[in-house]
Design a protein around this nucleic acid. Structure first.
Lengths: 195, 195, 195, 195
DNA sequence: ACTTAAGCGAGACGGTACGTCTCGTCTTAAC
DNA sequence: GTTAAGACGAGACGTACCGTCTCGCTTAAGT
């Protein structure tokens, strides 16, 4: 959320974009240094040289603030049609791994999932802004694979995506092992009977 | 943890097990009603009719308290050898799904993940007491499958488990869809070339 | 103490004087109802409808809070020069009796004494703000008496004051008898050879 | 109080006097080290190697415990008839000063007076056991002085004693100056027109 | 010698208040 | 009319003692 509840006709002193930027920058720094749960609005405001109320005016929850601060990090690259089903899915998976492996993105994705029931709004925003575009493009890539006959006609697309996302999440964030070299290949090999 | 550091020969008034039970029961109720992050030691003590110090005497952190309270819910059933590789893995996966689908278990698993950096002890206990026994038995089931020739000799056991755990986690906790009917079958079909 | 350590140029929201007053009022009420030792900061805050932190922000100890709350009660009236030595000392003694007979003042004076080692600051503030002005004016009254020849030239001023204060303390607070009618006259008769 | 409420025919294990002594000794040590208000029953029991319940069994309040622990220190010596009114009163006053100057006695007398309204029992015991014998003997000494004609027939005995006690209290405990050399002489000079 | 009741240490227990912390809101003066 | 500063109510934190209450062990007196 970037606008306050009441956004009337512009009157008085306009909002200072430099302040917004310094708040987002401070958020990123604190995320990096202390993680999500130990990040406090109070701390962010202090580091940004801003008042607490200013932060609350533009972001009503910690989740929203953090998501906007790392928006660039968590946007997952979409897949385009290269004509090669296997290649498309490999790229889609690698995009996912890349994003999940980004330090700040990892922290925030973890937080979004872990606080699902506490702060459902955070997960919703994450899903809508970061996940859905990728997911849509991945759905299309799989559909193209089915259309081409590279994948069985009865392929369960949702399940397929959940295998990809779940496995990548498990390997990159839960187990957190850096050597994810052959990960995308392994996953895709599993999904497309490699010959 | 249920015992103070030094549990020597019985001295002084012994711990009252009814109080322990009422604290753990109150913990479960509050977890169910308000979730992990809104659960407070103070609230648990009040509901259990106990003093705060009594709670702190036996559980030094919220994580330890909650894990012991839901120990039965989060223990994942282990797999035994039925002689049937496919059947063993199906059961292993279903055990996982069953545990992940339990409401209290889900809350605590999310909490363990969310507080990884705050309270690494919590994740450690969860892993050691709930996950590892299952994981060990699953590793053995896969190994038996390899030995029998039901699975390729070069099967990556760790990867295989991460696919199972990741996919189940994604489906049961992240997407949280109740109809997990064919989920275990779908996963195992993927891992064992179904004939 | 009524101001935090650093009271720079006014920045931020200023202290709300109504809250200060309600806290001091609540303090007086609790002092009256339960005495000093059973008065709790928590109770004062609750009765004043204030947060505990607000009380602690302005008064770092119970002693400071209580002393400020009863400042008017414990301030002992000073003596001015009426030209009559005996009259001046009578008035000085009566001022003392009057203050020591005040219910709230008595409670706080006892508390200041009781907590001399715990909270030496409390006794210091009491002495400096309530006792010293009176004592100084009494010293001057005695000195004038000496100068006028109404009192012996070798009068021990400090001793004289200790007789007055000690006797008044003993009668009004320790023995706590209400009929202190002739007390000041008796004391002054002792100190000035009545003719 | 040194005996439990019901002291029937002796049955069971008798009270161990060594434990009583070690508790009283620990009480004295803690009084000396931390004063009255910071002395805790818990701390005394721990230092004495005793259980808390043992302390509570014999002394129901902190005041009673402390008074018994320093009983020897706070007993004020009584005055006997030497035939010399002035001498008797000087001795009576010096006895008072001596007791008030004792470190442990001072701490406890202070506490007894300061906690008058909190723990009236403590003051009562102090008065009855320590003060009254002295006071009675002092009353008699003054009465003898009146009978002999050394003091005016209309001498207010109670007031006279309050001047002595109040002044000594003020000088030895409130102002706490060690040089109380001529104090008794100064007080008695005031009360008996010295010639 | 055996029984038995109290003394005793240890320490668990329900409470209460401590002083600190962070939350999200509210209120000024400054710009 | 937005901002920085920071006061405010709220309420949880983890700790310290309170005074009470079991426990199992010890110690004599009375059998």
């Amino acid at each position: 959320m970037t606008t306050p509840a009441t956004s009337k006709a512009q009157r008085g002193r306009p909002r200072d974009p430099r302040i917004q930027q310094s708040i987002l920058q401070a958020t990123r720094e604190m995320l990096d240094e202390v993680g999500y749960s130990r990040l406090t609005i109070e701390g962010v405001a202090a580091r940004a040289g801003a008042g607490k109320a200013t932060v609350y005016r533009w972001w009503s929850t910690k989740g929203e603030l953090v998501l906007e601060a790392v928006a660039d990090h968590i946007a997952i690259g979409v897949v385009s049609d290269t004509g090669d089903t296997r290649g498309d899915l490999l790229i889609a998976t690698q995009q996912l791994i890349e994003t999940f492996s980004d330090r700040l993105a990892g922290i925030v994705i973890f937080a979004a999932i872990a606080n699902l029931d506490d702060d459902p709004n955070m997960a919703r925003i994450f899903r809508e802004t970061a996940v859905m575009p990728w997911r849509q493009s991945a759905v299309e890539a799989i559909q193209r694979g089915i259309d081409r006959g590279d994948l069985p006609a009865d392929t369960d697309i949702v399940f397929t995506l959940d295998v990809i996302v779940g496995t990548v999440f498990q390997r990159t964030l839960v187990v957190a092992q850096p050597q994810t070299e052959g990960l995308s290949r392994s996953i895709i090999d599993l999904l497309i009977a490699s010959s």
